[in-house]
Amino acid sequence: MPKSKRNRLVSLTATRKKGFAETKASLVNEIHECADQYARIMVFRIDNMRNAKLKELRTDLRYSRFFFGKNKVMSIGLGRTEAEEYKENLHKIVPCLNGQCGLLFTNSSKEEILKFFDSYRQKDYARTGDLATETVELYAGPLSQFSHSIEPYLRELGMPTSLQKGVVTLLKDFQFAKKEMHSLQNKHKLLEKKTAEFRVKIDAIWSNDGTFELLQKNNINENNNLNDSMSDEDGDDDDDDDDDD
């Protein structure tokens, strides 16, 4: 006899979804805990963000802590004014929190971190909309690296190609200008050219003795609104993504 569809178990329990205010408060508390635990806080930015590369970076700096959260909430955790700051001079970091950036909590020295990031650069394929870092030039003739099936797609990308005896052939010299942006990712992947560079830049450094050093003056948000509250709706701000190592 077939099982009745009406004979179903219905769970009467429910898990309350974590509220937005609770998420903010949790992030603020974690920032306070890390400020007590680590000797330095650094504001960092990543050029040509790649998740895979970031995972490798977290592994290399597994004794440090990375925070990617809403800038306004991280600002509240640090203290937006001298009266609100959690520790001495932490409010000086707040103007640096604008755009896509994060906080790095570490016990490593300034020299160790700067030296590490200065050499931590990895090439990857550019994405659509990125600016090329070099000019790529192809010369007229057979393009044996491409299969015949991809020839129509190459023409769509603007390359003057044709099939000659089943071989993709470039009819004239073709150049991808350094400033070219259209479909850059696809072109450079096809050519196996990695022109994007994943790298991390440090904007500012705060130490637990109260000293603050600004390294990248151009990234200061002089119009930073210090009157935002935790009840503000931040849906259009940076993505919430608190990560630790």
Rank of each mutant, 00 (worst) to 15 (best):
Q122S: 03
A39K: 13
E197Y: 03
S26R: 14
N208G: 03
T211G: 06
T211C: 05
L9W: 09
E180M: 07
E197W: 05
I46A: 02
V136E: 07
K70E: 14
D232K: 09
N224I: 14
R50N: 14
A35M: 03
L131S: 12
V28I: 15
R127A: 01
L215A: 00
I205T: 10
D243Q: 14
S4C: 07
F116K: 04
F176Q: 10
A140Q: 06
F176E: 05
G69F: 01
D36L: 13
I113P: 01
I41Y: 03
N48R: 10
K53N: 03
D238R: 11
R155I: 00
I220M: 08
N29D: 13
Q37L: 14
L27A: 11
Y63E: 15
D237L: 13
N71D: 04
K165G: 03
M49A: 07
H32V: 04
S119H: 09
Q145E: 12
L104C: 05
L171P: 00
K217V: 00
G69C: 04
F68E: 09
L138F: 10
M49T: 01
T211S: 15
T161A: 02
P160Q: 09
K70F: 00
D60C: 11
L90D: 03
I150S: 02
L190I: 04
S108Q: 11
S183T: 11
N98W: 00
E197R: 00
Y86A: 00
E222R: 04
Y38A: 02
D234E: 00
K5V: 06
E213L: 13
Q145R: 15
M42R: 08
D203Q: 08
E82V: 12
L9T: 13
H32F: 03
F68C: 08
F198H: 08
S108T: 10
D237C: 11
E85T: 06
K193D: 05
